[in-house]
Design a protein around this nucleic acid. Structure first.
Lengths: 255, 255
DNA sequence: TATAAGACCTCACGTAACTGGAGGTTCAAG
DNA sequence: CTTGAACCTCCAGTTACGTGAGGTCTTATA
């Protein structure tokens, strides 16, 4: 094409860094429609098109959809609408950011756990991951049942303490899977249950455990919680564990 | 369906919070294929499917594509591969987060500027947005031309100072657009140029401005920079501005 | 037991923002 | 005048589903 202020699509693509195919697409959806050579049909881009494309790229970067951008560009008084939508856009980005951050901390915790624990049964691992992800929903559940104290207590725990809890949980789960099948009165089994219950007490504190035990929760709600935080055990393992715990409670003279 | 451990798709959807259509889709792509009633073709989900679905949801949350998840699930020893890919996934999320953060600060700066400046010509606004976005690329350009000092100086500026610079830039651009057409020797025009140059000196410091002036930069590189940071002016406005500045330089006895 | 409501089935198109390829036309250089 | 690069249009595919049509199956009630 050669002439100044008149670019072929190839030159224009080169200059702006936007692919030819994308420029075709923008033309197709009416976002950026350059002049066309009347006989050949070749696109002719001009200086103004560079400016328009820069607007498009900018708005895209800010998170606007191409459809919104099309509308924004066709209104000449952009600033008015922009001013309103910017705040909205900021909110959207904030939520995206939070989601990403949560995924990142989850991954980091999983990596830590894998590093320090080595091979972990995948059921255990996913149970852990899932419960991390639904932490906020679990908190909602607790608050609905007047257990805000627990939520507060948990939120005060540092990242390190949480990893410690993760590890405790994993070790306990591993042991359950190892010991499963033995009679529930078995010394080793009862020792494991004891260790687990003591760890829980230590983490939450006696008073909170008591509150949790006292809380009146209906069967249906328990179901709901179980869906939120899936057990890493098979149904049989779970049954066995429950029996072993009941036995322990009786022996220890708890209710 | 009614029976325990056998759920119709509707029940299963209810229980897990995953839409029926999504379950259909997961079946279709071989991600989660429940038993089917031989005559009716109705899907029958069981307890194991809940666990599988939870794995799927977890991995999806961590940012994996359904295709990857399919592979991960079909390998029974998940933890090995997971351990490797988690780190990669973390990197991807990090980049996403950075992009989002940059968009957020850009939007915040734009909002601030709009608040304090009111109506702004859209060309000016987009020129500003665009240059914010390409800040890192502009820094690369500067570093390539041995102007790392400038980059360092700029990086030390606080967010507030940057907003001040934005506003200076906008006011100057507004005035250029207002005064455009007047003779370049006009007092008002020359006053504006003076104000602008002084503001630049103040922001960067005399020494840096000198360095920038001394830097040997080729025409082609200048072109490149212009593509990175588009001028908010029309070509005519730009020409007029250049002439006015040259006149000012001569008058002020600068080179 | 007949019937109607509701749950389920498959098929197929639509979404966003492109990318890639096939097959044909135009341009620029030799 | 030829040839190869650049360009054109049209079609298909991508992800993770949503939506709706039109037909079948189950379940509750009359």
């Amino acid at each position: 094409m050669g002439e100044i202020n008149r670019y072929s699509i190839g030159e224009f693509s080169e200059k702006t860094g936007v692919s030819i195919r994308t420029l075709h697409y923008y033309d197709e959806i009416g976002l950026l429609q350059p002049e066309k050579h009347p006989s050949s049909g070749h696109r002719i881009y001009k200086h103004q098109d560079i400016l328009t494309l820069q607007k498009i790229v900018s708005l895209k970067f800010l998170g606007y959809s191409l459809e919104k951008i099309t509308n924004l560009l066709h209104q000449s008084i952009i600033t008015v609408d922009l001013n309103e939508t910017l705040a909205l856009q900021l909110e959207v980005l904030k939520k995206d950011k939070e989601r990403i951050e949560q995924s990142m901390t989850t991954i980091q915790r999983v990596i830590k756990v894998l590093e320090e624990e080595g091979g972990v049964d995948s059921a255990i691992l996913f149970s852990l991951i899932h419960s991390m992800q639904t932490e906020s929903i679990q908190n909602e559940w607790l608050e609905r049942h007047n257990l805000t104290v627990v939520v507060e207590k948990l939120s005060k725990k540092t990242e390190k303490e949480k990893i410690t809890l993760d590890k405790t949980f994993i070790q306990m789960a591993k042991e359950v899977k190892k010991l499963y099948g033995k009679p529930i009165q078995d010394q080793e089994v009862q020792k494991m249950i004891k260790a687990f219950i003591e760890a829980s007490f230590e983490f939450l504190g006696d008073d909170l455990v008591q509150q949790l035990a006292d809380a009146e929760v209906e069967e249906l709600d328990i179901q709901e919680l179980e869906n939120l935080a899936p057990s890493p055990f098979t149904e049989d393992e779970q049954k066995w564990l429950n029996q072993a715990m009941e036995y322990y409670m009786k022996e220890a003279g708890m209710e």
